[in-house]
Amino acid sequence: MVSGSRLERLLRQGEFVVCGEMSPPQGADKAPILKKCEYFRGYVDAVNLTDNQTAIVRMSSIVSSFFVLEGGCEPIMQMTCRDRNRLAQQSDLLGAYAIGIRNVLCLTGDYQTFGNQGDAKGVFDLDSVQLIHTVADMNRGRLLSGDELKPPPAFFIGGAANPFAEPLEMRIIRLEKKVAAGVHFIQTQPVFDWSRFEKWMSAVRDVGLDEKVFIIVGVMPVRSAKALLYMRDEVPGMSIPDECIKRMESAQDPKEEGIRMCVETMQRLRNTPGVRGIHIMPVMWESITPRLVEEAGLLPRPEPLSIEETSPETAETS
């Protein structure tokens, strides 16, 4: 056991976890966060808080994570390398731990020109693998400078993986690097293209990475065929097969069809070896999360054992 967070305890107990995702508000009020927490409390085990997703300014992910704690859910704070240099990253991590955040997802971040302030300077002082290594080092009580941390934080460290981008072998090499750097769990891009996902997953199993790291796979409910087309054409690194688009186009009620498609994916992932959880990414449609979790038969969410109750084997740090 590293951090003792709810997410970590559930994963180490062998439970199939469900994560949600929330975009912090574009405004100086915490009320929208607390309201969205109602869609997550009791339905998911942890919620991702995006860090200026697609390079569009929103409330800071650290502060939003704090409000999510206040709202009774467990946050997974995302941290990108785009907006901060290594000094800011380390000091923000210390502050985040001190206010009770235990899960951190280390990302490189979308390039600044994808947002609406493309004239900004991207920092990219570290990359995501180096950030993971930095957090792992901080867990061991050491800053990048070599200075000792007293007391050190104990983060449950996450990283991202994209099973759909080419070339496949390079993706596995990068995942291996992340594991070597000290990542504990991995969240992936949403699955639409099953054949490609199966290929990636079997490559991951072949090198035994599913044993070393908890793999939480993304799913995304879509409301229209247009959304799928947008993702296929505008979001790099996404693979949307034509049959998905056809299915959405020919549906009587695209919204319902989107939900059904997402639930089917969730049920299929539930039975895929090596997959340890689901990460639901309803972009600006957080209110659908309870229905998805319920229809996929993942309710009620299990309660984790306390740290003392956890058996020594599962408590071992990996």
Binding site: C81, T108, G109, D110, Y111, G122, F124, D127, S128, V129, Q130, A160, A161, N162, A165, E166, M170, R171, I173, R174, K177, Q189, P236, G237
Partner: peptide, 13 residues
Amino acid sequence: PKQMRNGPCGGTR
């Protein structure tokens, strides 16, 4: 553009 030294980001087309 992101000066990645440890492998590609997730955005390769």
